[in-house]
Amino acid sequence: MKNKLNLLLLSSFLLAIILVIWIYYQTTHRIGDIVFDENIDNYDFIVCNENRIKQYYSVGTNYQGGEKTIKKELNELINYMSFNESGIITYRFVINCKNKVGRFRVKMIDQDLKENSFKSNNIKQIQESIKNLNGWKAGKWKGEFVDSYYILNFKIKNGKITDIF
């Protein structure tokens, strides 16, 4: 009887510990989080608060003049870059509280919205162009500029970039 009680107590205790750890992990991680990866991320880009990277739509992060302006500023790239496939290239990245961008991650889909891949040279070149844009405006939260995630889509049709949004 005594052994059974000890066993019950121990097993319920272990289960509760495992559950608490699981819940903690599950409630502190989000879809789309970008953690620093030394293999692909630049050490020069620093976020202001690693534990508080918001979503662009919660804090009003934007580009001066909107994506419309990005389209104008990347006009040269749009004109000369060519692709073999159609679809959407999506860049998710961080705009830090000092209007700098980094930690790029890329997702690609084809016209049927299934995973796809485009020429890696182009992917890298577009990424560099995004970095060189000067109009990024950090989001504001409780009166303070904060880091946030942003998304920029490049639509590819008939071998060319046809839209940025």
Partner: peptide
């Protein structure tokens, strides 16, 4: 919803 909001459209769709 969360996938489409974060730009993971293949999974979202």
């Amino acid at each position: 919803v969360a996938f489409n909001k974060s730009g993971e459209y293949a999974k979202g769709f």
